[in-house]
């Protein structure tokens, strides 16, 4: 049993799958230039030593090409793991992801598989509006893409391995403050959770959430950094006699509705916490679904705590205001208990 950061766990997943399957390869900008960073957050650092620069392929700054090349390679027998430095750049490659990756299997009547992985760092980290967005919601809206968001080292490794073996395009959202990147790529104010990762091989199936904390009064569904902010809020709330259950869905497409339903049967209250902006974020869809299938288990309205509907501002005081904090989550919970 090793203790790994999320960046290390992702790297180990890539390493294991590349050893197992010679068709697996990585492509992206600055992913392992000799003397370079190993990707924007060090995930692919050093992999070229073992696999060479042909399989750890540094690309020009060409996001359309990176995504399209991943689609073309995946359709013809390879298993690409494409890398984008910041999730915000996914917009540059949107045509390839939305019109090609997501639709090739369908348009071919099921004849073609597209086993590609698209990794993308998200989250606000005082870099201003264009290196900050949480884009999970956009991609959950495109049929044909699977969406995963690991928040622990254990999940990062197990889910990424599953993603690499999946015959469909999988978009992996990783949080900048959770990577645990080291050296000159370390993030200020990062949480960098280090977690136990088994030595033996394991996979984590998609569509299976986990309960991060058990509780009686309120169910909170949160992903990525918001899992940790919610755990912090739960500590505050416990001191005030409010018991919170926290669910990390781990994958947004497919989504583990059963786990949420089981939880609200007990708590009868639901808060969804997301770093994505509020309007039409993924949380809106979860709220709508639970209202349809779980309405009678609820004793109070479903509440969303999300980033406000503004671009992410630079000033740390403003950024901290826009992105949900533990205090804001706790306040929402207290208000909900009174309703």
């Amino acid at each position: 049993m090793a203790k790994l950061s999320i960046a290390e766990a992702l790297r180990e997943a890539i390493r294991e799958e590349m050893r197992l399957n010679e068709r697996v390869f990585c492509l992206g900008e600055d992913i392992d230039v000799d003397g370079g960073f190993g990707g924007a957050f060090t995930v692919t650092l050093g992999l070229s030593k073992e696999f060479g620069h042909e399989r750890i392929l540094d690309t020009p700054i060409s996001e359309i090409m990176i995504a399209g090349a991943a689609v073309g390679a995946a359709m013809t027998g390879m298993v690409p793991i494409a890398d984008v430095q910041y999730g915000d750049f996914l917009f540059c490659m949107m045509d390839q992801l939305a019109n090609n990756a997501a639709k090739m299997t369908y348009m071919s009547g099921g004849a073609i598989k597209v086993p590609m992985v698209m990794r993308a760092p998200v989250g606000a980290t005082t870099r201003g509006a264009q290196h900050a967005q949480s884009l999970e919601g956009f991609f959950t809206h495109i049929p044909g893409l699977k969406i995963i968001c690991p928040s622990t080292a254990y999940d990062a490794k197990g889910l990424l391995k599953t993603a690499i073996r999946d015959n469909n395009p999988v978009v992996v959202f990783e949080h900048k403050l959770l990577y645990g990147s080291k050296g000159n790529r370390a993030e200020k104010s990062a949480l960098s959770p280090v977690g136990e990762v088994p030595d033996e091989e394991y996979l984590i199936p998609f569509g299976k959430g986990v309960v991060r904390r058990e509780g009686r009064d309120i169910t909170i569904v949160a992903n990525l950094l918001m899992v940790y902010r919610s755990l912090e809020a739960a500590e505050i709330l416990e001191n005030e006699g409010i018991s919170v259950e926290i669910i990390d869905p781990r994958t947004l497409v497919p989504f583990d509705y059963d786990l949420v339903i089981e939880s609200i049967k007990k708590t009868s209250r639901l808060i969804i916490v997301e770093e994505d902006t509020r309007t039409n974020g993924w949380g809106a869809e979860i709220a709508a679904q639970i209202a349809e299938i779980g309405f009678y288990y609820l004793d109070a309205p479903i509440v969303r705590v999300a980033s406000y509907d503004v671009p992410i501002p630079f000033a740390p005081v403003m950024e901290n205001f826009v992105v949900p904090s533990a205090a804001r989550i706790a306040d929402a919970a207290k208000k909900l208990m009174k309703s």
Binding site: G68, A69, T76, N99
Partner: peptide, 29 residues
């Protein structure tokens, strides 16, 4: 695909990055 014809891509130039990936795949394999 069984005769090597990918589903036609109807976004202007949208097939070009895909062709790069197919070329990469032919070379890597």
């Amino acid at each position: 695909i069984s005769v090597g014809a990918l589903p036609a891509i109807a976004i202007t130039a949208g097939g070009m990055p895909v062709a790069v990936g197919v070329g990469l795949s032919c070379k890597m394999r």
